[in-house]
């Protein structure tokens, strides 16, 4: 952050902190210098605070713990609730956030257990990817020639789905995704569609759909469509939920008739 700039201002940042999973949360406020138009984003604000960990009351504190890696909104690490909206800290510019409110507030996501401060434990999401057998069942990694041919149209659908970075925004926004149930949420439903749309991937289609018909599967979705509004990668989640929903119904009928 360039010092002694004429147009420099300080921005008030309020952060909800929590020392450990069982500790009770508390708020701390920091004043962070930055100039309009200098591209300061939330992760650089957090870096500044790490180097200058003193609150507005002059109390020395610790650097804020948060997850981050790519800093270009592609790894999904730095999801947090900023000014009440769930999003990535690395792609949020202070200038833009100040158009929403005069001060900036940052909180951890509420749908996952807090590890510390803004870092949360998203293992549930990774476990659910495993639950739906989110992979293409290949015959091992020896050279066996190319994969199946694919139409550009199908590739286009799959490509859009494949950009899900497991950030968790859709789960944070979903009214059905709670601590006390095992709903998989929109991201995982969308992955069911992703794998079922691949020729080899679809060998596990029945297993995936069966999982989707269990408690916590696609029927748990209340169609509130909050998820699609907050997805930073513009994944067509509503379409995915509809497609997987239809497929499970079809599968259920088929099973009745086969029996």
């Amino acid at each position: 952050m360039t010092a002694d700039n004429a147009s420099q201002r300080t921005v008030r940042i309020n952060i909800k902190r929590q020392a450990s999973p069982d500790a009770s949360p508390r708020w701390e406020a920091f004043d962070v210098p930055c100039s309009p138009g200098d591209g300061t984003n939330i992760t650089s604000v957090l870096e500044y605070i790490a180097a200058h960990p003193r609150t507005v009351d002059g109390v020395d504190t610790t650097p804020v713990t948060y997850d981050a890696a790519c800093l270009e909104e592609v790894c999904g690490s730095c999801t947090m609730v900023i000014n009440g909206h769930v999003r990535q800290g690395c792609s949020q510019l202070v200038d833009r956030l100040l158009e929403e409110a005069p001060e900036i507030t940052i909180e951890p996501m509420s749908k996952f257990p807090v590890v510390r401060d803004l870092a949360v434990n998203r293992e549930r999401l990774f476990k659910d990817f495993q639950r739906i057998q989110g992979w293409v069942p290949i015959d091992g990694s020896y050279a066996l020639g190319p994969g199946p041919k694919e139409s550009p149209e199908n590739q286009d659908v799959r490509y859009r789905l494949s950009r899900c970075m497991a950030c968790g925004c859709c789960l944070e926004a979903c009214p059905q995704y709670t601590f006390d149930n095992d709903f998989v949420g929109a991201a995982v439903i969308s992955q069911v569609r992703y794998f079922n749309r691949h020729e080899t991937g679809s060998r596990l289609e029945d297993e995936r759909l069966e999982e989707m018909m269990k408690p916590g599967g696609v029927n748990h979705c209340g169609q509130a469509q909050n998820c699609v509004k907050v997805c930073p990668k513009e994944i067509p989640l509503t379409e995915s939920i509809a497609e997987v929903g239809r497929a499970t119904t079809r599968n259920a009928f088929r099973r009745i008739f086969i029996k």
């Binding site: 992979w135 293409v136 290949i138 066996l144 190319p146 994969g147 041919k149 694919e150 139409s151 550009p152 590739q155 799959r158 490509y159 494949s162 794998f195 691949h198 080899t200 991937g201």
Partner: peptide, 8 residues
């Protein structure tokens, strides 16, 4: 073969 959505 693993399903990477390579452009077509």
């Amino acid at each position: 073969r693993m399903g990477v959505p390579f452009n077509r």
